[in-house]
Design a protein around this nucleic acid. Sequence first.
DNA 1: ACATGATTAAAGCACTTGCTTGAATAAATC
DNA 2: GATTTATTCAAGCAAGTGCTTTAATCATGT
Lengths: 214, 214
Amino acid sequence: MIAEKKTTKSLILEATERLVAENGFESVSLRDITNDAQVNVAAVNYHFGSKEKLFEAIQCRYIDPVNEERLKMLEELTGEGRVATVREILEAFMRPFLTVVKGSEMSEKLFFKLMGRCVMDPQGGLPEDMVPGMKRVAETFTKALLTAAPNLTTELVLWRLHFTFGVMAQTLLHGELLYSLTDGACGDPDAEDQFQEMIGFCEAGFLAEKGAQK
Amino acid sequence: MIAEKKTTKSLILEATERLVAENGFESVSLRDITNDAQVNVAAVNYHFGSKEKLFEAIQCRYIDPVNEERLKMLEELTGEGRVATVREILEAFMRPFLTVVKGSEMSEKLFFKLMGRCVMDPQGGLPEDMVPGMKRVAETFTKALLTAAPNLTTELVLWRLHFTFGVMAQTLLHGELLYSLTDGACGDPDAEDQFQEMIGFCEAGFLAEKGAQK
DNA sequence: ACATGATTAAAGCACTTGCTTGAATAAATC
DNA sequence: GATTTATTCAAGCAAGTGCTTTAATCATGT
């Protein structure tokens, strides 16, 4: 569990998560946060040091667990000489979003949006102390994918992982946009369905030949 | 050609494009713009009415031509009963970014970032008068893709188009991030190569069976 | 040369920004 | 109960925000 008691600090974190998920990092002010959390303005600087550090805390709070879960799932797939499929590896890459949100108190919709913000608008780049973790994930998954699809080159895997990131971020952030843009014609699949579609799409992309001429 | 004379109005537009591409809509202030453009603050409100309308102008300035070019390319592919492949349709969807940037004075890198911003952080949603155009593109391409891949359902095509958007936005916006995160291991392919990889990835995703179980 | 409308410029307005201050309060330690 | 220590509060500061106002400048046609 991540949030238990309604301390001032946790009130600030929760309000920030809500506001950032809905409006993005750049549009949320200290007053927005402290009003929403029913807390004094000075409390943010007292507990977090600065607005920027508060935002870094927000970014680490769920992404770190997601990355841990990713590595754990991957280890279970590939440890002790086991061989994993591309699909299984992609699942290890994406499913942690679903499992971590279950352990939090946030609604799925809000959590996904917040994660999308972290991936797409990381306030002034990724927080410095998240970079090693992200690199580790990228490297470990790249290696696993290269083993699972030995016909691919490292560069190709990196690019396709990058594309996969895009699919994920878009789905996390803008699930609603598609709904409104198509007047609901896209249906209203639940998170697990969307998740399977995402994986299916990216799996096929990964298994394609280079350049994939028709 | 889009920009010819160094009028105050065009200076403002160019400075705004540069700053927004680099920093995102939310972080750019009127003073940032007018300092960079070497014009008076009041000029923005005189020529555009408000900051918001300036941003709308920025968003329309290249996306409208991109959407026109998309429809034109698609029409050439599917007009008069011709039958197009999924790959050709996806190319009609994406290549306009490459052709429109060639006709502008902006560098590729800046243009792609700006387009990424427009897609990912559209300042307070899409400008109202762009929505019909976007809907038209979505509908036309959905229809074409359904014809090219008759085994897919409308919902599936919409979702996969959505995923394709994500791949595109991520590549436009964060090409550099991948480079730095992998210490250059992703190589440094030119725009056309990246473009072919993007299309290959999305084509394979589109051609996958629903859910794409291994 | 003059008048007309379009454009630019300097100053400022009301408001918001992140952050700090110094006093008041609550909690913990002795 | 007294004394630290941790936390909360109201107030305010300097800088920045979008935008307006009023006067000056420019280009134009007569």
